[in-house]
Design a protein around this nucleic acid. Structure first.
Lengths: 350, 350
DNA sequence: GGGACGCTTGCACAGCTGTGCAACGCGCAA
DNA sequence: TTGCGCGTTGCACAGCTGTGCAAGCGTCCC
């Protein structure tokens, strides 16, 4: 099957090379190379002649050969499990856009569940001499991290916790604490956290900080975890939280997807009103959070901002490989919509 | 800025090469090459010695050099605008998974709106000697198609209409016609189509076939188009369709996103019941369509199926570059949920 | 007019692999 | 023992680029 693309009935339609251009322009091949190298020494008229020939032939510098020589491929791996779902989709797209703009080549590694797939992804990445890897949040292919470190290639993790690695992360504890405080200030006594058992560091951080801060204020906190951090998982968590006799009046959903499930369950199945009966707050600010059906109050993570910072981190890492690992925290801003409104500064709750 | 990653304080941490392995194993470099080439002539014990040395050093064949020699990079470009939104996100992820499994390298080209970005994407793709390109539906970077064809590299378009190019497409007209018939059979007289002005071929096909079939049956069809094929566009279309005195009783939304907007508008703002007052049907079967808040009846496109067929098409194209362009139609299946239930076979409408 | 200097340009090598060709060693048969 | 054949291995080249080094040439100044 693979053979079809491997086969060579036509021996691959040879691309035009610098030699072709040199011949047409009547100069040496090195002159062509210099013409395409900024800052190299070429006479203006020679360069012009070369450029004209190149344009006529449709020449494009072969980045494979260039990368081979310079030992730099410009390839950056984006490793993610389920890159199509929720916030990761937005983060992936933003990273691809930022990388392309700076001339890099984003390779999307859809790191599957099986070891076989993980291994194929590894071969792909290292075989093509990726010069950097960005690991998105999600279940952790720790073998990647291992291998990248042992080969000394820059690696940035987004939302993954790992020692000895550059890390960029939303400030989950701060957000969770602030929200717990806001719930209590608004008069809520019975709080709840709808999480998941996925065990992602971001998930764990949000839960722990929220629970800790709430109990510090003397509030009850119920915790329910779905099997995964998605809509289905959110439904499970919602069922558990609201099956008990003592229902919470304010819920922090670890995720917008979980929050949507929560809202659908409360409104659709239990007939509760939001936020009058139950206040709900999510995390991510997916576009869906602004939809009329939800109007979800949620913490905003800006994918483009995150992507730009991640790439900047990559650059400074490449500039100084021996520097100490950086751990960057980014503040999440609460987008206030209809599912919960904090008490305004000084003003009484309405 | 780019300079940071370009700079070479450490001259890039040289990967181990076949020569290193050869030295350690005490053989020639060609022996190493042969050991990693299936079907090459190597003595079993030599191969074993080489493999041991390779494992110890962590050697990995350099696909850049291999690709340079063979004139095959294994790189496949995925070109899409806004790859994070709706069905494209799922299609992109599915394609990446399929390509990785077969040993290809999926490069995600987030083809922006500006010419500058498009040009950067082109350079990236052709500079790295991509051996195939897959264009996802969306606004059409037609210069890509042009250039790919002139360089004779396999190109498959999904949902894009273009002559002289391999094409894979859902059978939009068939689905639209079937739905128009089902609406009428269920007793609806005033139909409507919520579309967009984006002008994507798939969009146009659905609109035209739906309108034609409905009028053929003598039904009224109102058409409203939002500026774009997304939630915001769907809201605009919904406003226009239901501002008129004569409200439609069944609406075909060109897209699940548009359908969600429609539902939110009808239920939330106009207080209508679905499907009692208005029936709504979408297209794509995004995961959101199964959410409790929507339970949307919609046509299903299977991203994995589409991805596998696209890659298969790529392979057969590579095997025979001179064959006539193929145009493949895939049937969309109606997923029946709560927003519309067709009359069952032979049974009367409930 | 001659020498020195600076800008251009070509040569050759490096970077890493796959493969045709020839050589080499070994086993087997005559 | 010699010759033949086969399996294995090394050499060398190709594929495409960037760049140090030296040579060439023109120009300017003394």
């Amino acid at each position: 099957m693979t053979d079809a693309l491997n086969g060579k009935p036509h021996p691959a339609p040879r691309f035009v090379s610098a030699r072709d251009v040199a011949e047409l322009a009547g100069v040496s091949r090195s002159a062509v190379s210099r013409a395409f190298t900024p800052g190299a020494s070429v006479a203006p008229e020679t360069r012009e002649k070369i450029m004209a020939a190149a344009a006529r032939l449709g020449y494009q510098v072969n980045d494979l050969a260039r990368g081979l020589l310079a030992n730099r491929s410009r390839i950056v791996g984006l490793v993610a499990t389920k890159p199509e779902v929720g916030f990761r989709a937005h983060l992936t797209a933003a990273l691809a856009a930022v990388l392309i703009r700076r001339g890099s080549v984003p390779v999307l590694i859809n790191a599957g569940e099986t070891d076989e797939e993980t291994e194929a992804a590894q071969r792909t990445l290292f075989g093509h001499r990726a010069e950097a890897v960005i690991v998105l949040s999600g279940s952790p292919p720790s073998s990647f991290i291992e291998l990248a470190r042992s080969n000394g290639l820059p690696l940035v993790a987004i939302g993954r916790e790992a020692t000895e690695i550059d890390l960029i992360q939303t400030d989950n504890p701060a957000a969770a604490r602030a929200l717990a405080g806001a719930f209590i200030e608004a008069g809520h006594k019975r709080l709840a956290f709808a999480g998941s058992e996925s065990g992602t560091p971001a998930i764990v951080e949000r839960e722990q900080a929220f629970v800790a801060e709430a109990t510090r204020h003397g509030a009850d906190v119920a915790v329910a975890r779905g099997p995964d951090t998605d809509y289905a998982g959110g439904l499970r968590a919602a069922e558990r939280l609201f099956a008990a006799a003592e229902r919470p009046s304010a819920v922090f959903a670890v995720n917008d997807l979980v929050a949507f499930a929560l809202i659908d369950h409360l409104k659709g199945r239990l007939g509760l009103r939001i936020p009058e009966d139950v206040a709900v707050v999510g995390f991510d600010d997916l576009p869906e959070a602004a939809w009329l059906g939800y109007r979800l109050t949620t913490f905003r993570q800006d994918p483009l901002d995150l992507a730009e910072r991640a790439v900047a981190l990559l650059e400074s890492r490449a500039a100084d490989p021996s520097a100490a690992p950086v751990s960057l925290r980014i503040e999440a801003r609460l987008m206030i919509r209809d599912t919960f409104r904090p008490v305004a500064d000084g003003a009484p709750a309405s």
